[in-house]
Structures are given as structure tokens and as C-alpha cells.
Design a protein around this nucleic acid. Sequence first.
DNA 1: CATGAGTACCTTGCATTACAAGGTACTTAA
DNA 2: TTAAGTACCTTGTAATGCAAGGTACTCATG
Lengths: 107, 107
Amino acid sequence: MTQMMKGILDGCLLAIINENEVYGYELAVKLERYGFDSISEGTIYPLLIRMQKEKLVTSTYKKSTAGPKRKYYSLTDKGEEELASFIKRWEYLQINVTNVLNDETKP
Amino acid sequence: MTQMMKGILDGCLLAIINENEVYGYELAVKLERYGFDSISEGTIYPLLIRMQKEKLVTSTYKKSTAGPKRKYYSLTDKGEEELASFIKRWEYLQINVTNVLNDETKP
DNA sequence: CATGAGTACCTTGCATTACAAGGTACTTAA
DNA sequence: TTAAGTACCTTGTAATGCAAGGTACTCATG
């Protein structure tokens, strides 16, 4: 499972950040609810930092009612473009893999 | 695109090998026709060797009508199990990613 | 007030793996 | 005999998910 996530997870993060500002810990919780059980914080935080370096997201700290300050992320214009591009790549991949599996395993 | 293939390509290879014996060069051609333009032989051969080490496939050399001997691969029982397992993982991934994209980008 | 649970962030090091680039060698036709 | 097409393989590099480990804040409980 873990290998399959490579290159897909960042697109999912962009998608989640797209609608609302979110913070890293929240992302971990949301992803888990979506069924990605195994995505740990050790994966998410480096990814967010990388995406910020690439100017796909920006961040601001806000106080929390319970616990340390939260680092909220939101998409830049470039991030929105990257999300759109990811969706296209994902759809393309999905179609191709589905074709292979259908053609070759149900002849 | 290339990152998204990690962990997916080997399942596709298993699927293609599943029905008919195929050789490496043929796999490259088939994948290209399925839309995976960028999958080069430098990717496929190491993967086949790895899968053989893991006893997912076996291979036999046969003469070719044009060119050097071909190394034909076929699935072992373990390979068939792995293919079935891959299909489940893929379907699971597909559903989850689709949910994220739908929920978060079309609210 | 001290302690623990829950929240929230981050770093280091490792393993996996797709690919570019480069190499070998066989067959057939010009 | 030369070129084109077929067919195999290896080396080195880059990307990236994750386990493990660490820091620090808030609040309720004893």
C-alpha cells in the first residue's frame, strides 16, 4: 500500500487544503477517515514543508484552544494549478490501469 | 507521472503476464499501447528480475524468429495471489482518492 | 501543584523503485 | 558487410513514504 501512495498523496493533500484552511495534524486525521490508515505525521509534515518550498501552499500560525499553536495551510494560485494538473494525471492513470486489469484479467 | 507509477507498475505487469506468457520487450510495447508512454526497458527488466526473485514469476528462454532469444515470463501460484491482492489494493486506493477529490474539490 | 492525556509540531535515517544512460548481441535485408 | 530492428541487461540517481524519536503546549484530575 505504501508504495502506491507515492506521488498520489501530495495531490490528495492539495485537494483537502483546497476548500478550507487546514493544519497538519488535522490532515492526518482526515486522511485516516478517508481510509488512508497508514499515513503518519512523519509523512505529512515533510510533504507540507516541501510543498511550501515549491510555493504551492502558504501557512500561518493560529492559537489553539487545546494544545500548541496550529500551522494552517492554504493553496496558492500555483497550488490550484498543480491540483488541476494532478487530477488530470490521476484520471489518466486510473483509466489506463483499469484498462490493463480488465483486458488482461477478464479476457 | 513517474512518481505515481511506484507500486502500481508491478501489478500491471502481473496482470499482463497473467493471461499469456510474455517477454520483457513485448511488455514495454504493450504498456506503451495502454498509454504508459514513459515506461522504459530500464524500468521493466529490473522489475521482472525482482519479481522472479520473489517467486511471483518464472521464465524460460525461447528462440525468436527475429533477434536474440526471448525470455518468456509466466505467473506462479504466488504471483496469482499477489495479483489478486494488488487488484484489491488498487480498488481500495481508487475509491479513497476519488472520495477525497470529489468531497474536497466539488463541495 | 504535579502528573498524565491529548494535541500539535518537527527531524533523522532507511528502504523502495522508476528511469536515464549506456552496453551487449542476435537476425535479416539491402 | 553494414544497418536496422529486436531483445536483453546494468549502473547510478532522485524521489518520497514511513518508523522512530523528540519537543512543547493545554487542561483535567488527583
